[in-house]
């Protein structure tokens, strides 16, 4: 409190950028969602007409919107627990030792996270191809029938989610590993002397100590999956039959492919409110305390 301006000086540059590039656009979306803005309207603002809540009404009646919303829900239910469980398990195992081998292994687990989807989608597309893909070829060598990984309306959700899990765990492994490092090894060794079994040790000591890491990973992972876009966009374009179209992809198609910006803005606001709602529920009662 002695230097009342200091905190503002610290946060100002980042805040300004965030306000301009993060908050302003969603504020712009609000008025746009009440208009019929399309590509022509974007070029010449006098051609935009006020549409009231017509966009929202149409959204509620749009089967494709509900399909995308349902798909997103399924993706999140598949992806979030898997990402959290896999990254925690991998981090725990990687934490086991500090030797060269284990350190080298880390790079392998982090690698998928650092690669661009543009690049890896190609590879996955070839691997998962029904007729000519390597995965089905391997299945056939052990006598299993080929699966339509990216072509079956049900299976496609799992395949697309699988690629996203593959890409999504690396960062969370880093976070969990960082958090695990903060638990003094003596705690664990002491517990071992007490005869605590591996599983009990994890449940009773490690997980409570990693409360914050878990919450952080959960919140960011949920947000990421509700905004799920990259994998379906590049792997399936939302197909087959729209069964892998996520809500973000739907909004992209309405906004950029169909040029219906008013409609897409309305959908975006709905998505934003859903994300905000889910996040607030997660955070409720579990405050991110700043001064522990």
């Amino acid at each position: 409190m002695k230097q009342p301006l200091a905190p503002y000086a610290f946060i100002a540059p980042a805040m300004i950028l965030l306000l301009v590039f993060g908050v302003l656009p969603i504020l712009v979306a609000l008025p746009v969602s009440l208009t019929d803005m399309n590509l022509a309207g974007l070029a010449d603002w006098s051609r935009i007409e006020f549409a009231g809540v017509a966009n929202f009404r149409e959204l509620v009646a749009d089967d494709a919107f509900w399909q995308a919303l349902t798909n997103t829900g399924i993706f999140a239910l598949l992806g979030v627990p898997t990402v959290i469980a896999v990254s925690f398990a991998a981090a725990l195992l990687l934490h086991r030792s500090e030797n060269r081998f284990f350190r080298a292994l880390r790079a392998f687990y982090f690698a998928p996270a650092i690669t661009a989807i543009v690049a890896v989608s190609l590879v996955w597309g070839y691997l998962l191809n029904t007729r000519f893909g390597l995965v089905n070829h391997l299945l056939s060598t052990v006598g299993l029938p080929p699966a339509r990984w990216l072509g079956d309306p049900v299976l496609v959700k799992f395949s697309v989610a699988l690629v996203a899990v593959w890409r999504g765990t690396g960062l969370n492994i880093i976070i969990f590993l960082a958090a695990l490092k903060t638990i003094p090894r003596e705690y664990l060794e002491a517990a071992e002397l007490d005869g605590a079994s591996g599983a009990r040790k994890i449940v009773s000591i490690v997980i409570p100590l990693l409360r914050f890491a878990f919450l952080f990973v959960a919140v960011t992972t949920v947000i990421a999956w509700l905004q799920f876009f990259d994998e379906p966009f590049v792997l399936t374009k939302g197909g087959p039959l729209g069964e892998s179209t996520s809500i973000s992809l739907f909004l992209y198609q309405e906004g950029f492919s169909a040029g219906r910006f008013g409609y897409a803005a309305a959908g975006t606001l709905v998505l934003f409110l859903i994300i905000a709602g889910v996040t607030l529920v997660q955070l409720r009662g579990r405050r991110f305390d700043a001064d522990r």
């Binding site: 409190m1 009342p4 200091a6 905190p7 503002y8 000086a9 610290f10 946060i11 805040m15 965030l18 306000l19 590039f21 993060g22 908050v23 656009p25 969603i26 979306a29 960011t220 947000i223 905004q227 876009f229 973000s248 909004l251 992209y252 906004g255 950029f256 897409a264 803005a265 975006t268 998505l271 934003f272 994300i275 905000a276 996040t279 700043a290």
Partner: peptide, 28 residues
């Protein structure tokens, strides 16, 4: 700034920071 100072508007501003994570990229 957010971690170690208490100042007016800290809560709402930090909320804005969190809110930017929730904004879908397509709209921006």
């Amino acid at each position: 700034g957010f971690a170690k100072f208490r100042f007016r508007g800290r809560g709402p501003m930090f909320f804005l920071v969190l809110a930017t994570m929730m904004v879908p990229v397509q709209v921006t």
